[in-house]
Amino acid sequence: MAKQPRTNQSTGNVSVIISITLVLFVLGIVSLLVLNTHRLSTYVKENIGISVFLKDSTNTAEATNFKKLLDVTNYVKTAIYVSKQEAAKDLQKELGGEQFVTFLGYNPLNDLIDIRLKADYANNDSIKAIENQLMNNPLVKEVYYQKSLIDVVNANAKRISFILLGFSALLLIIAIALINNTIRLHIYAKRFLIKTMQLVGATQGFIHKPFFIRGVINGLIGAVFAIASISGTMYYLYMQAPNFFTITDVDIALIVALIILCLGCIISVLSTYFALRKYLKLSFEDLYAR
């Protein structure tokens, strides 16, 4: 039996699958970023600190009680009590071991409670209200936070969301164009076969069928490779920076996987349909001309 020349056909399919995989991979990563923008924004906001300095007169028991009170307050994510002695030790370390307490003859620092706010409260309006509320407490000497940093974080979180959304929309168009071009080239190579099929009495539906099946298979294979690559990349990033690149929620991961699978199949089948439609309409002479 003659060996069938599958090589060219397989090479064509491999090119299509590689094209689909690469484009869906980038698209998937951006989709994950977009879907995780809120998480990233929350992560950054919840790492903005507010330092609540306590008066010199505050004793440890009062400070501990106040810290416990803050722990159960609705806007506080975490509250850490740092005594003036611990603060002095930390500062001494930062100053390269210089014993400033001995030099001054007293510890100029105050006890403080370092607060991390919940993301919803990490805006200047809320923080101002929180500051006022804290200042009403007789134990509190001063509340310190970086107002400009909070503005920058909030402004950038919105900006990044819009940029990512715009970028992903652009990428979607590029994805469609790239996959479409690759598939059109693949079908262009078969244009004479398609025309011959027409001439022997095959209906358009009959001619479409194997191309659509191949389109779905290529789309699915490309999507599966893309999902595997995205999972690998996310795992690598998680291993490198576990706090920042947290493994995403299962439902978000499933949504992205589903979007990628659907996109792979839909773009592949639609591109196949439009390319086939074009060549089915052309005469043999036109096929040579194009």
């Binding site: 003659a2 076969l193 025309k195 011959t196 022997v200 009495g201 095959a202 009959f206």
Partner: peptide, 29 residues
């Protein structure tokens, strides 16, 4: 076209399949 048979100068066979598959394609179609 199913009631016609068409023969061309350049044969126009389906080059990606065997002779038998060329013929069975027409029957399946």
């Amino acid at each position: 076209r199913r009631k016609l048979g068409i023969v061309f100068q350049d044969f126009k066979l389906l080059t990606d399949r065997t002779v038998a598959d060329n013929l069975s394609f027409v029957l399946k179609a």
